[in-house]
Design a protein around this nucleic acid. Structure first.
Lengths: 220, 220
DNA sequence: TTCAAGATTTTGACTACTCAAAATACAAAC
DNA sequence: GTTTGTATTTTGAGTAGTCAAAATCTTGAA
């Protein structure tokens, strides 16, 4: 059985993966910082995880989860998010104090207890922060995502996925403040000029060509 | 903060103390067996606990909790028993499977979460096995309980505690409808045949060997 | 009083982490 | 093409807990 430490490592890699470049490799420094250990510790621990088949490790480049590693990460995330919801919903705890509690509990909740909590809460799909709760089978439920350039004006939604891993494009997305999680509403769409205009949830507006908008997937 | 291991040691010493002689010293061998470690491990660990002021250690004689140790033990026991009740009552888990779960959870439940659970359950005083739940302040009322096989025919009382957490035994108790709270009257007792017969408060009668009856403690 | 049996302690070694600090690789700038 | 700065890896050491097996006590019987 995986120790808490192992679970924390794979979980953290999973969470950092989206921010990683097109290689999907999480840098050692970033990982170490996120886990609050010195870089050398992360290096040696990652070697152990690689032995165990949970990650692919490319020295001096970074780490990436194997499918087994990802499965474990999703399992931990499921526990974490169900526990958070449980703390808020059943135990009426304060929104702000649940994260650290869940951080501890996520490592000792058995499958049996977890499924009881899941049932008690009515098989929820999102946690209090709006993060999707992975399914018991160990996969994230599929979300219905629509490319931004396919949305009619007036439609609103939340950025769910960026379907292009190129460095430059991701930097552009960052600059435009279009990272996943950002809410927006389409205000104009010109099929002949092949461009779309959206107002972000904090008021700012952005214009994009269809070529770029096609790669931005929205949860309507 | 005490590690899980430290908490387990003090809890176990607390639980073994009543069976200890008038010296109140728990023998190393017993402690080691209860914790499923080799005796040498217990010895070295106990020295650490003595350093920390949680136990008084008399080499080659045994250990005894200091008042600080007892306070910690009661705190762990409170967590364990509230969690057990919570698992049965709120999560509707099976009587027999809760002990091991609670064994894990008792070490990661914060005071904040614990008090929420306590409130949710309505500040209960006993757990599903009939064991008294120590108060938040760390006090535990002693009850006068008598083993069922020591009761004279004609005596009546209420099942107060099941002194055996083994799965199979708990399932047996369930089948025999002898859970804590059940009223009964001893109708026959055969010291030579080593068995006892009792009529339950809903009319049914059960017969038990002394071996089993010894684990059923009655509040007269 | 001596001795064997049983319990206890000591010793040495191992696992799973961790840090501090020195060594090394790499990319970017000159 | 060398240098410099930063990220990464290596090395050596420490902590908490554990086991196996040898050494040592204690006790009760002969």
């Amino acid at each position: 059985m995986a120790t808490s430490t192992v679970e924390n490592y794979v979980k953290q890699i999973y969470l950092l993966q989206p921010q990683a470049g097109p290689s999907h490799l999480v840098a050692m420094g970033e990982l170490a910082a996120a886990l609050a250990v010195v870089p050398g510790t992360a290096t040696s621990m990652i070697k152990t995880l690689a032995e165990a088949g949970l990650v692919d490790y490319e020295p001096r480049a970074g780490v990436r989860l194997t499918s087994r590693g990802e499965k474990l990460a999703l399992h931990v995330l499921r526990r974490h998010r169900l526990v958070e919801l449980f703390l808020v919903q059943t135990l009426k705890m304060d929104w702000a104090e649940i994260h650290d509690e869940a951080e501890q509990l996520e490592h000792v909740i058995s499958d049996r207890v977890l499924e009881r909590i899941d049932a008690l809460l009515g098989h929820p799909t999102v946690d209090p922060h709006g993060d999707v709760i992975p399914s018991a089978a160990g996969s994230m439920p599929r979300r219905r995502l629509v490319a931004l350039h396919d949305l009619e004006p007036g439609t609103s939604g939340v950025v769910g996925r960026i379907a292009d891993q190129a460095d430059a494009f991701l930097q552009f997305i960052d600059q435009q403040e279009l990272r996943p999680g950002r809410g927006l509403e389409v205000v104009a769409r010109d099929t002949l000029g092949r461009m779309v205009r959206a107002r972000l949830d904090h008021g700012r507006e952005v214009s994009l060509g269809f070529g770029a908008a096609a790669k931005i997937e929205i949860e309507v």
